[in-house]
Structures are given as structure tokens and as C-alpha cells.
Computed example of a mutant assay.
Amino acid sequence: MHRVVVLALSEAIGYDLNIPPQVFGAASKDGHGLYDVRICGMDDEPVHFTYGYSARLEHGPEALAEADTVIVPGTRIEGPRKRGVLEPPLADALARIRPGTRVMSICTGAFVLAAAGLLDGRRATTHWAHAADFRVLYPNVDLDENVLFVDDGDVLTSAGLSAGVDLCLHVIRSDHGSAVANQAARYCVVPPWRDGGQSQYIDRPLPSPEDGSTAATRAWALEHLGEPLDLDTLAQHARMSVRTFSRRFRAETGLSARTWLNQQRVLHARHLLETTNLPVERVAADSGLGSAASLRQHLNAAIGVSPLAYRRTFARS
């Protein structure tokens, strides 16, 4: 199995640390787990957490040398967080990671990757509340604190806390397809998909009692993706003016209605490519993307592959 090693650094953020084993541990196919997840520390000492407890781990830094993916969760470790440096024990631990290993961070784990020089010249993110400090310490990183996660190939970073769930599901989806990722999300009782470009901070995720919500219209749209849907149609279904609907939609989702609709159509197309033998033209039509050429363009923009290549990789046998 693909081995994921989570590096716990005192003081560790317990929520962040438990996301990878929970989410990757839920990924399976034909009843078999797809990831071997291990948590390690820098030494044999207990790892301290931010809310008054500690834990002794089964694995030390030697586990990093056997990892296919290394994840650094949120941490308050002094060197990377305050001075922009790696202390020798941490530098020695990170030096064990093999070239070509996929490296990820959740929340302030990005400070550690940046201190190691892994983010220089790259686009990355971290929790929005720590963005100012991050920029001062690591000016060579192209930081975007307005997104949930950034996939930069072999190095991936996420915003704080639950954005780590989105990043892990994104990786599962990239490794094994939408069906496996959706199954893992269902087991964890979390939304199966939030796009990495979605805003970290949504002003009003829930409408006030006197306001209308766009939730019913979003649910309706998901059942009618193959039909012509535009902003006027969605606003009419919600019984709102276009201006009011657009404002409330963005307040509740962090996205414009058009961006959200395109994402849902691409997701549905991916599901059809994985689970059916429908011709590409039919997949494009049923998902509302129009033509095979349009589907190819959208899929290429989203994940960098053609529909046929995606089907060959992820279609169920």
C-alpha cells in the first residue's frame, strides 16, 4: 500500500494531526485499504499537544525514510513559526525523506516546509490568521491565504483545520478517482468536494432566519446538470432577483454561481467516466458541458488529463 507518514511536532495541533489517518484510513477499494498511515515524531519523547495532553508515538523519524507521502500537520514549533529556521533535530528528521516523496502540510505545517526551503518560488497556503507572520518569515513563497488548498505537484499545502480534510480527499481523488474519494468522505461524514480555490473565509455560511437560502436551488441544480442552467434560471428557481441571488450564493458558498456550477458539472462528468461506459459525447451532454471538446477542455483545466485518459485510469473494472 501507499505509505503515508504524518510528522508530529510539539506543540502539535491535535485536530490537524488526526485528519490524515482518519481520511486516508477510510479510503478503500474492493474491501481493501489503499493507504498505510503512520504517525511519527522526531525522537522517542512524547509529543505535546496544544490543549494540555501528550502522546507517545509508535514510530520515530526513521519512518520518514519509508514514506511515499509525508504530511506535516499544524504545529507551534518555535524555529519555523517564530524565527524561520529549522533546528538541527528537525532538519535531520526531514533529511530522511527520500527524493520524489510527495510532501504535504496542513495549516501551520506550511511554516515547516517553508523553513526547509521546499516552498521557495512555489505557490502555497496556510491558515489565513497566520499569513502576515508567514510572509515576514518566508518572502520567497508565493502565499495565497484566500484558498483552501494548493496542489503544486509534489508539494501540497492546505489552510487550517478542516481544509486539511479537503486536501486529503483531493489527494485520494487524484490517486484513485472520485468514487473512492466520495466513499471515504461518506464514511467520514464530510462534504465530498470543496474546490481548492474556494475562499477560506465565507462571510455568512448560514443565512439569518429572515433571509432566503440558495441551498434548495443548489440541490435542484445538481439534479438538472444536463439542462441549460444560467444565472437567471437559478435566481428564478430561488425566487430572488439575480443580484440578491448572486450575493447570497457567494456568501453561502464562497464561489460565484457560474464557478460552482462548472465544478459540479466536471465532478459529475468524472463520476460518469468512472462508473459507466457512456460515450464521451454523452457524458458531456449529461453533465451539462455540451460537447466532447468542451468536456476535454474543462477536464484538462481541472486535472490536466483528457476524458479517455481519465477513464482508462479510474474506470471500475
Score class of each variant (00 low, 15 high):
Ser174Cys: 06
Gly33Pro: 14
Leu94Asp: 05
Arg173Glu: 06
Arg247Gln: 14
Val4Thr: 12
Glu62Tyr: 02
Leu255Ser: 10
Tyr53Leu: 11
Ala95Val: 06
Thr214Cys: 14
Asn182Cys: 08
Arg239Trp: 03
Arg122Met: 12
Leu148Cys: 14
His237Trp: 11
Ala185Thr: 07
Arg102Ser: 11
Ala116Ile: 09
Val47Lys: 09
Ala185Gln: 07
Gly226Tyr: 10
Ser10Asp: 00
Ser105Met: 02
Ala95Pro: 08
Thr125Phe: 05
His268Gln: 14
Val85Ile: 15
Cys107Met: 07
Arg243Ile: 06
Ala132Lys: 13
Ala179Val: 14
Leu273His: 04
Trp193Leu: 10
Leu7Cys: 03
Cys40Arg: 08
Leu272Tyr: 08
Pro20Cys: 06
Asp44Ile: 00
Asp230Phe: 04
Ala238Arg: 03
Arg316Gly: 13
Cys107Gly: 09
Gly212Ala: 15
Val103Tyr: 05
Leu17Lys: 00
Leu231Tyr: 02
His127Gln: 07
Glu223Asn: 12
Val5Gln: 04
Ala159Arg: 06
Arg76Thr: 00
Asn146Ile: 05
Thr217Trp: 01
Val37Gln: 09
Ala163Lys: 04
Gly197Cys: 05
Gly31Leu: 12
Cys107Glu: 07
Ala93Asn: 03
Asp286His: 11
Asp152Phe: 02
Leu272Trp: 07
Trp128Asn: 05
Arg173Tyr: 04
Glu11Gly: 00
Ser208Tyr: 12
Gly177Pro: 05
Val136Thr: 15
Pro61Asn: 10
Ala159Leu: 03
Thr108Lys: 06
Ser178Trp: 00
Ser162Gly: 02
